[in-house]
Design a protein around this nucleic acid. Structure first.
Lengths: 100, 100
DNA sequence: TTGATAGTTCGTATATAATCGAACTAGAGG
DNA sequence: CCTCTAGTTCGATTATATACGAACTATCAA
């Protein structure tokens, strides 16, 4: 795995983005990335198996929400904030602004 | 069927709302209700079978997004705009504001 | 080169969701 | 009461997601 393909946000539908955000594990990842700025997969796993996390990161990447950069042995993830905000204005603000 | 139970928005999670909105049929219903204000189930079916539509309306109701009022033989649906806006500020604006 | 660490991929099991026909229910009107 | 219409419920099928162990890959460090 040399590096990841990240979709152009223009090719991401709102349905796709909403679906990616509708899972509690993934929403938790997104919230943590919003706070932390950048984090490895392991830092966000909450004790879940690696294969499950890998699946959720893949969904988030395919929905254009998360960017993953390979840094040595770790894969560092960030929210694609500006791009998502441009494509879906207000969506992340709304989703991240909600109280439990 | 005398009338429907509509959940208190406080009991609806953002995950639940996002999931309801992430299906293309349901998103289409929501968009049409946003424009039309109020519509019967049949007016929004786009040629789909009644049982399928009934399922999607149930999901939308259970996510607190749609209110259904029985008016004679028809069931009239509206978006629960103000309540949803209060619970998830900016969410519907973001979802409904997106171009194609 | 060996070992450890981080994460992916594969395969499979299980759960959840979508689709839709058929039978049913409720209200309106003759 | 009969019938039409609008929508629900049931049941079965199929599709899509989730979960996760096991085997694999890549990088780093000793």
């Amino acid at each position: 795995m040399r590096n990841y393909a990240h979709p152009d946000l223009a090719d991401v539908t709102i349905e796709h983005a909403l679906h990616a955000l509708s899972d509690p594990v993934r929403l938790d990842i997104v919230r943590q990335l919003d706070r932390a700025g950048e984090a490895s997969c392991a830092a966000l796993d909450g004790g879940r198996p690696k294969s499950s996390m890998s699946h959720h990161f893949r969904v988030l990447r395919s929905a254009g929400l998360v960017h993953t950069r390979i840094a040595g042995v770790q894969h560092m993830n960030t929210l694609r904030r500006e791009e998502v905000d441009k494509r879906f204005p207000g969506l992340l603000d709304a989703v991240l602004g909600v109280m439990g």
